[in-house]
Design a protein around this nucleic acid. Structure first.
Length: 499
DNA sequence: CGCGTTGGTCGTATGACCAACGCGGTGCTATACT
């Protein structure tokens, strides 16, 4: 009862949503906890409420600045003053001040990168930490190995600051990812609260087409007839932009692109316009999604295949949060799997680059002690991208500390990368096989999460039978709000060869 | 890897053909400079 009373007085809710209470009780009893809750709201309550019941600070590790800002703001709107998003939006002076007065805050949002700074760690060590929260914890597994290595250091950080009670929150994690989370955080012995990842109101469909052109034509067609709002996912920024333009050319007025190459301001603008119903359609890369709280998205189309089933689930999971019928359509043409393979492989330094670095070290033996200052030189001459360099440097530094010979390190590195690439190829193949599956698509996705389809789903998937008509825009309504484009003229457009 | 784009060839008007080339995602931070 005490929990319910606090829920009412602090947050104004009269009842918990499924899962929340169990998770909160687990955390309050001092157990490390992994919680996998369906997408949508409700996860943040799992750390906010305990925060008010335990003495000390709540540290929340967040993957995105925008998420941090959002959540901090949200808490402040709710009357909480002792909140800080400790990130690069603060000036140097503000950071310094905040560090000195860290113990005056209740909720501290921070990125894995910032967390690892010595100045931050030494201050954190002095605190009495009530709860260590890892939000979107699948990032550990999904980003830690070859994109944001600081994600893999969370366990080390946790140890340094005295093994505080830890709560890992995510919406999608396979058994492997879950194991990864527990292992890297060092919480092998923990409580688990796992809820189904199934979203019965999202119909699943794969359309196999002959080639790129056919896919594009089908995309234009679908965007013209489907009930919006919708998201179309691409694995190329250029394609996302070109397609948004193409759809506008075909008459769709309220379409915008969204990708990581855009400046922060336009990204926020597009996102806000979409959330507030001023746009019907977003042509996006995987940059679009986390933190998007819009409950009436009716369809998600994939023009390119994602690199993992989980990413797919995350991306389509943005549809139908209101519980109404929605659809996810994957467009596939033979050869499409090459793009994700290429993306996965280009992420890590290749053998030739590692060999190049080996030669460079032979010519510059003094650099081994501290290779960091040579970053620009090495990057420029070996052709390593920023991400590749960081992954390389992280591995090199870690192994150097343990006193390994550089030749041995580079050899181990090659082997390690080879293993990573194999894993990535395997997960791409899983998506590929799923596309060619002849059995229920929901069933096979769920099986990746060790789940079974236990109820019959009315509009399940293209294999079980699906009426696309159920997802079309109501053409009778002369709704001036969203005249996406003139569907009747559409076929004629398609007959005109593109310029 | 395989797609689309680009630009050259042919040989005299337009477009068919082909080889060469480029492209391909996700975010944090600091520092020095304007």
């Amino acid at each position: 009862m005490r929990l319910e009373a606090l829920l009412q007085s602090k947050f104004g809710f009269s009842a918990f949503r499924p899962g929340q209470k169990e998770i909160i009780e687990s955390v309050l009893s001092g157990r490390n906890t992994v919680a996998m809750l369906p997408t949508g709201t409700g996860k943040s309550l799992c750390y906010q409420l305990p925060g008010y019941m335990i003495e000390g600070q709540v540290i929340i590790i967040s993957p995105l600045l925008s998420l941090m800002q959002d959540q901090a703001e949200h808490l402040m709107m709710n009357g909480e003053k002792k909140v800080i998003a400790f990130n690069s939006f603060l000036t140097r002076g503000e950071k310094k001040q905040a560090l000195i007065h860290l113990n005056q805050y209740k909720f501290i949002f921070i990125s894995p990168e910032m967390l690892y700074y010595e100045s931050v760690l030494s201050q954190l060590k002095k605190l009495r930490i009530a709860l260590f929260v890892v939000d979107e914890a699948h990032c550990i597994s999904q980003w830690g190995y070859d994109f944001r290595p600081d994600y893999l250091k969370l366990g080390e950080v946790r140890k340094i600051i005295g093994n505080p009670v830890t709560l890992a929150l995510t919406a999608t994690a396979t058994a492997e990812v879950k194991a990864d989370i527990k292992k890297s955080l060092g919480i092998l012995d923990c409580s688990e609260f796992i809820y189904s990842v199934d979203r019965p109101n999202i119909a699943l469909s794969v359309e196999r087409l002959e080639n790129f052109r056919e896919k594009t034509e089908r995309l234009v067609e679908l965007a013209g007839i489907l009930q919006g709002p919708g998201i179309i996912y691409f694995s190329s920024k250029k394609m996302a932009e070109q397609s948004a333009e193409l759809l506008r050319d075909k008459g769709a007025k309220r379409v915008m692109a969204y990708h990581g190459g855009m400046d922060q301001e336009s990204r926020i603008l597009v996102q806000q316009q979409f959330i507030h119903g001023q746009l019907d359609l977003i042509c996006a890369t995987s940059a679009f999604g986390m933190g998007i709280n819009k409950d009436n998205i009716r369809y998600v189309i994939h023009f390119h295949m994602p690199l993992q089933i989980e990413s797919y689930l995350q991306e389509i999971g943005r549809a139908g949060r209101d519980g109404n019928q929605s659809i996810a359509i994957m467009l596939y043409a033979p050869g499409d799997e090459q793009l994700p393979i290429q993306l996965a492989e280009s992420e890590l330094p290749d053998k030739a680059q590692i060999d190049w670095i080996k030669e460079w070290i032979e010519e510059n033996p003094n650099a081994i002690q501290n290779i960091g200052p040579f970053e620009e030189q090495i990057k420029q001459r070996s052709g390593l991208t920023d991400v590749q360099w960081r992954i390389f440097n992280d591995f090199f530094e870690k192994k150097s500390k343990s006193g390994l010979d550089y030749r041995r390190i580079l050899q181990e590195m090659k082997e390690y990368y080879e293993g990573r690439i194999k894993l990535k190829r395997d997960s791409i193949e899983e998506v590929y096989k799923w596309i060619y599956k002849k059995t229920c698509r929901r069933e096979s996705i769920l099986s990746c999460f060790d789940e079974e389809k236990n109820a019959s789903v009315p509009s399940c998937c293209d294999i079980c039978g699906l009426q696309l008509e159920n997802f079309l825009r109501n053409t009778n309504s002369d709704n001036q709000e969203s005249p996406l484009y003139d569907w009747k003229n559409h076929l004629e457009y398609l007959l005109i060869p593109s310029e």
